[in-house]
Design a protein around this nucleic acid. Structure first.
Lengths: 134, 134
DNA sequence: TCTTGACTCTGTACTAACTACAAGGTTTAC
DNA sequence: GTAAACCTTGTAGTTAGTACAGAGTCAAGA
C-alpha cells in the first residue's frame, strides 16, 4: 500500500491529477488509513498507467472511461466494441490533421505575400487580408 | 449604430461571445444607449470580423490581441513583427500536425493487431497493449 | 519529548474560449 | 395594454487538469 505521493512518484502523474481522476471516476476511491490518507495498491497503479497511456494517445477522459468500462466488464463486451472506439478515435485524429493542414496552407499563402521589410505594420499584407471584406 | 443582436446576426458571431470578447479586451467597450444597450458602429464590425478570421485560422485570443495591437499602433511596429507572429503560429501548427501524425501511426499499429472478432474484450489486443507494463 | 520539515487532507479558484441560463429591464408590434 | 422579443447583469458550466490556502499527520533529529 502506497500513499498518493508515492503513486505520483512511481507513475510520473501529478499528485493533484490523481485526485482529479478519482473525482471524475476514472480511478476508484482508494481505501483510507486511520488518519484519512489514501492507500493505493497494485490495481490502482495498473489502472493509472492505463489512463496515462490512453491520454498520451489522445483519448478524451470520456473515451478512457468507456475503455475502462469495457475492460472492467469484459464478459458483457466484445473486442469489436473496443476496436470501434479506437477506430472512431483514429477517425477524429485524421480529421484534425486534415483541418490543420488546410489551415497551414492558408497561412502559408497569406504569409508568402509579406516580405516583412521594415515598413509600417499598417501596410502589412497579412493584417490587410485579415481585415479585408471577404 | 446597431445593437448586440444585430452585430451577432451580421457577423454570425454568438451574442454572448461578443460580450466575452469585450470582457477580455479584444473588442473595445462600445458606447451605450440611454437605457444601457450597447451601440456598435462600423469600426466594431470590422474589428469583430478581424477577430473571427484570425480565430478561424487558429490564432489564440492572446495572439489575436497581439495582432490587433500591431494594427492599432502601426507606426510603432513593423511588418516584420506581424510576419514573425504569423510564422510562429505556422510553426506551432506544423508541430501539432507532426504530433497528431505520430499519434495516428501508433494507434494504427495497435488497432491493426485486433481483428475485432466477437470475442471477450478481456483478450482484446488493444486493451492489453494499454495495460501492459511498458 | 519537542520541534521541524515533509507529507497529506479538504475545498476552492484558476486556466482557454467560449456557451448557457436566470432574473430583471426595455423596446416593438399589435 | 400587453405580449413577444430583445437587452442587461451576474453566474455557472464545459475539458483536463494545476495551484494554493489552511489544517491535520507523520517521521526524524536534538
Amino acid at each position: 500500500m502506497i500513499t498518493r505521493g508515492k503513486l505520483s512518484e512511481q507513475s510520473g502523474c501529478n499528485a493533484e491529477t490523481i485526485r482529479y481522476y478519482e473525482r471524475i471516476g476514472l480511478l476508484p476511491d482508494p481505501p483510507r488509513s486511520e488518519s484519512g490518507y489514501r492507500m493505493y495498491d497494485q490495481e490502482h497503479v495498473s489502472r493509472l498507467r492505463f489512463i496515462q497511456r490512453a491520454r498520451e494517445l489522445g483519448f478524451s477522459a470520456q473515451r478512457v472511461r468507456d475503455l475502462l468500462n469495457l475492460s472492467d466488464r469484459p464478459k458483457q463486451h466484445t473486442r469489436a466494441e473496443v476496436k470501434d472506439l479506437t477506430e472512431a478515435h483514429i477517425q477524429e485524429i485524421s480529421e484534425k490533421i486534415r483541418d490543420l493542414q488546410k489551415l497551414k496552407k492558408r497561412l502559408d499563402a497569406i504569409s508568402s505575400h509579406c516580405d516583412g521589410a521594415m515598413e509600417s505594420a499598417k501596410d502589412c499584407p497579412i493584417l490587410i487580408s485579415l481585415f479585408a471584406e471577404h
